[in-house]
């Protein structure tokens, strides 16, 4: 009887091991976790890693893309392969790997837009401005609703600025600001609008146009007093008064307004902290 029981147990365990050990989502998750752990370790000191170490991690991610092509994170594995080639400086290889995502995972628009962004970066690194801009524009046209698409206008302007093309940069900043203003007014109650405030302020900050930034933030408070945009705009304006225009009293006024008018928003606590800091510095 004991022999029969042990045979049954052995068969059960063996079948579990065979059917459950290396198939399906769980195994994909396991491989991805271990590969990501190695990647994070490598990213802590990428210069110290040898090409063999890079290749080992690339192989691990590659195995995931081959074994589990339909697994949702397979696209991320492909993205990581591209990143690893890009870090090594193999930009052409990196580009090819990023473009695979657009071909194999068109449904993953977020990752597709990030892949195109990385392709643009590789062209920027190779000083191929037309190709870089072409890919950046493609993000805005093909994946307009993604977070990456929102970053593109300011990125283009900053790229021109970095390359010393001041006229193109100014025009790009104007385009970016217009785009962002429109986005905020069309989506005033979304998280995206809150993020876009930072982007628009970056555009002004890059050009040191603080007065215009403050004017726009004031207009936001006036137009969107009933949304989270108002406390956010007040807070950002407070930071500009405090750090850029050296007007701590105006900053304190803004912070106080947030704590009084918008006490239940996440900005109220931040404003209180800033107020404390201003009072201490007095």
């Amino acid at each position: 009887m004991f022999r029969k029981i042990s045979v049954i147990c052995a068969v059960l365990l063996a079948s579990a091991a065979i059917s459950g050990c290396d198939s399906g989502t769980y195994s994909a998750e396991k491989r991805f976790w271990h590969a990501s752990k190695d990647l994070n370790k490598l990213l802590q000191a990428p210069d110290k890693a040898s090409p063999v170490e890079y290749q080992k991690i690339i192989d691990k991610f590659r195995e995931i893309t081959i074994r589990y092509p339909t697994w949702p994170n397979s696209a991320q594995a492909q993205f990581n392969i591209g990143q690893l080639y890009a870090i090594q400086g193999s930009v052409a290889k990196a580009r090819d790997e990023f473009l695979v995502i657009l071909k194999e995972h068109p449904e993953n628009t977020d990752l597709c837009s990030r892949a195109l962004y990385m392709v643009a970066i590789t062209y920027e690194a190779a000083d191929d401005a037309p190709k870089a801009i072409e890919n950046l524009n493609r993000i805005m046209s093909d994946y307009p609703d993604t977070g990456t698409a929102l970053q593109v206008p300011v990125h283009i302007a900053e790229y021109y600025k970095l390359k010393g093309k001041n006229d193109e940069a100014s025009a790009a900043y104007v385009t970016a600001i217009d785009k962002y203003k429109k986005y905020i007014s069309d989506n005033s109650k979304t998280y995206g609008a809150l993020v876009t405030i930072d982007l628009i302020v970056t555009c002004y900050a890059d050009q040191a146009k603080w007065a215009e930034a403050l004017e726009y933030l004031d207009s936001l408070v006036a137009a969107h007093g009933d949304t989270l945009l108002a406390p956010k705009a007040l807070f950002v304006a407070g930071a500009i008064y405090e750090q850029k225009t050296n007007q701590p009293e105006k900053a304190a006024l803004n912070y106080r307004l947030i704590t009084e008018k918008y006490p239940n928003t996440p900005f109220a606590k931040l404003a209180e902290k800033q107020l404390e800091a201003i009072n201490k510095s007095k």
Partner: peptide, 19 residues
């Protein structure tokens, strides 16, 4: 101990098919 081992193995495999 064997029974506990079997239980542990089954629970370890619980996120995978057929468990």
């Amino acid at each position: 101990a064997i029974f506990e081992g079997i239980v542990l193995a089954v629970l370890f495999y619980s996120p995978r098919p057929p468990f």
